[in-house]
Amino acid sequence: MSIFGNILNKIFHHGPDKTPDPKSGMNAPKAAPTPASAAPPPPASAPAAPAAAAQPAVDVGAVLEAMAAMKADHGGNYRTSIVDLLKLLDLDSSLAARKELAQELGVHAGADGTAEQNIALHRAVMDKLASNGGIVPDSLRG
Rank of each mutant, 00 (worst) to 15 (best):
A72T: 00
P47K: 14
M1P: 14
G113I: 10
P40A: 08
H13E: 14
A109P: 04
I11C: 03
G133H: 05
P35D: 05
S37G: 02
D17W: 05
A69H: 00
D73Q: 01
L86Q: 10
Q103Y: 13
V58A: 05
S131G: 05
S37V: 06
K18N: 11
Q117C: 09
A52Y: 00
V58K: 09
P16R: 14
P33T: 05
H74Y: 06
A102W: 07
V125H: 02
V107C: 04
A32H: 05
V60S: 08
Q55M: 11
A39H: 05
M126C: 03
A46Y: 07
L85F: 04
A57D: 14
P40H: 04
M26E: 09
S131A: 13
S37W: 11
D84Q: 01
A97L: 10
P29L: 12
I82L: 06
A44D: 14
L89D: 05
S2G: 12
A96K: 15
A68F: 00
E116I: 13
N6H: 12
P22D: 10
M126Y: 00
L95K: 14
P43H: 05
R79D: 01
D90I: 00
Q55R: 14
P16M: 08
A44Q: 12
A115S: 08
F4P: 04
D127N: 05
R123V: 12
A36V: 02
D59F: 11
V107M: 06
M70R: 08
D92P: 10
